[in-house]
Nucleic acid binder design. Structure first.
Lengths: 156, 156
DNA sequence: ATAAATGCAAAGGGTTTGCAAAGGC
DNA sequence: GCCTTTGCAAACCCTTTGCATTTAT
């Protein structure tokens, strides 16, 4: 299930920074790094609790901070009013396709887009740093009438 | 300053929906519809107060809801932890370029991008509804060393 | 032994809601 | 006059912080 190698890298990061390797940090790291979804802080807490080692909310957020600082996890904001987190995989950068019905998130990569953003930014005098593209639509299974659930705050 | 025509359309919308045309709604509509910036709820409240007619926070949010429903205003989420609002101009859709230093927001339009998002969505079985692209970078004046201020929450 | 992490609960920021008072139609 | 809006304050959600206690090293 969870990729041992990534956990080891997190432990190495903790050691490097003289940060204690606690059971809570490990449990949280295993959940986030082992997930292929974009988890919210609450979902992380629930998943950790489901494994038998419940942790406090503050601990989840503090562990997430550490994971973000380690670079092993990245945060996402889909305009839901809260953040989501996902393992920073080898993929250098990718865009998101979000189902407005069930909340499912798919990823994709497009190099043309990458180039295009640089050109646009420069044409307006901006030094491009990064970009973010989210396409909203209805996924295949929802189009076929599978009852969805999640609701996200509309943004243009 | 504010475009009378748009206000009239808002009044027409209110009439059409049997919603009272109150001084507060008008003041808020004039501020939002007359602005060329992306205002936060708080900024709207301040601007309205500056005009001499202070309104409560709840009223600002409720009036914004009405403006959104009327289609005359659209909301934006730049990952700052709160929403911003801008008049829905004739521009059908546009992207944003945000300065990570001073917070300045510029808009632009790109048709190729529009098409590209439809193609990508369809290739993955999604029925495209809308998309959102934000490019982060450093604007010209900040590159030349003008002290910025605003800080936005990092998102990839 | 020491410095840091944990948990809890309280605080914090943006937004929403309940309800009595005010006001448009 | 009836029904909606307003304002205030309390409630809400997500997130952060303070502090006593537990824990890794």
């Amino acid at each position: 299930m969870s990729d041992r190698g990534v956990i080891d890298r997190f432990v190495a990061y903790l050691r490097d920074h003289n940060l204690p390797v606690t059971a809570q940090r490990l449990a949280i790291a295993e959940v986030v790094l082992g997930s292929d979804r974009h988890l919210s802080a609450e979902e992380i807490a629930q998943a950790v609790a489901a494994r038998g080692t419940a942790v406090g909310t503050a601990t989840v957020y503090r562990a997430i901070d550490t994971l973000l600082e380690s670079g092993l996890v990245v945060e996402r904001d889909f305009g839901e009013g809260f953040r989501r987190f996902e393992p920073a995989r080898d993929i250098p950068h990718h865009e998101h396709l979000v189902c407005t019905q069930c909340g499912r998130v798919e990823e994709f990569r497009d190099e043309r887009l990458e180039r295009m953003t640089t050109i646009v930014a420069e044409s307006r005098g901006f030094a491009r740093q990064r970009h973010r593209l989210v396409i909203h639509g209805i996924c295949g299974s929802c189009q076929r009438g599978a009852g969805g659930a999640a609701r996200i705050r509309g943004d243009a």
